[in-house]
Design a binder for these strands. Sequence first.
DNA 1: CTGGATCCTCCTAGATACTG
DNA 2: CAGTATCTAGGAGGATCCAG
Lengths: 133, 133
Amino acid sequence: MATTTAAQRREQARVEYDAFIRSCPTNQLLDRISDKWVSLVVCALTTGSMRYSDLTRKIAGVSPKMLTQTLRSLERDGIVTRTVTPSVPVRVDYELTPLGTSLSHLLAAVKDWAELHIEQVNNARDHYDASPS
Amino acid sequence: MATTTAAQRREQARVEYDAFIRSCPTNQLLDRISDKWVSLVVCALTTGSMRYSDLTRKIAGVSPKMLTQTLRSLERDGIVTRTVTPSVPVRVDYELTPLGTSLSHLLAAVKDWAELHIEQVNNARDHYDASPS
DNA sequence: CTGGATCCTCCTAGATACTG
DNA sequence: CAGTATCTAGGAGGATCCAG
């Protein structure tokens, strides 16, 4: 016994690291905003509250399932509020919370960086792709 | 003919929207930094250049494949430089470029926001989970 | 109108094993 | 030491149907 293989040791490290990463707020946040639809939803809501169907139209191409799923997780995290008006037919409005607004500011910062540096990245990419082998 | 189904129209919208999203710098950047390993690699390199094996150890749990893949894409984007020293055995160092350093600052901003607001998110989450259905 | 539930497919992370 | 090649399993996301 006591012969821990490399694979076993690596597995162990992986498990520990997984735990570390999950407990890391930064990675939690990164996971959240990196979601394909989250940034679009938050962006769409910065201009004010919107109905479900409005979002469907504004974020063309999203499936009902993903939109609902995204909104639910954002609601759970306190980023958006969900308001149901029991009329006929039902009307549901979504709106950013203060926390959500704060997040939108962070996203704006990300956006600024992106627009400021995207050219450099594209240049680097072209150069890399053009370089011999 | 001319009977475009809802699915077809949606598919069309999806394709157009995909093109739009891909051309959006913000989403390109978001895709990049949201990669599970990118933030960790960039973070690891902020303290200075590191060898491939150093990174393997520092970012315990990453497979050679993913590390290489991550480093290649970062190199392509001009975020890191790859320096090969043809000694025996070979030695390869990775280092952040100025652009990479700039990116690390953005990541730091994300980190700050995360640490500042993670508690609110967790509270909201607990509250949401505890609320009756 | 606003979703929930189900099925199904594709993509990719990761394990494993091999090479210069 | 620093990767590359190959394979596979799991999960994310879409289509579809159904319900309050």
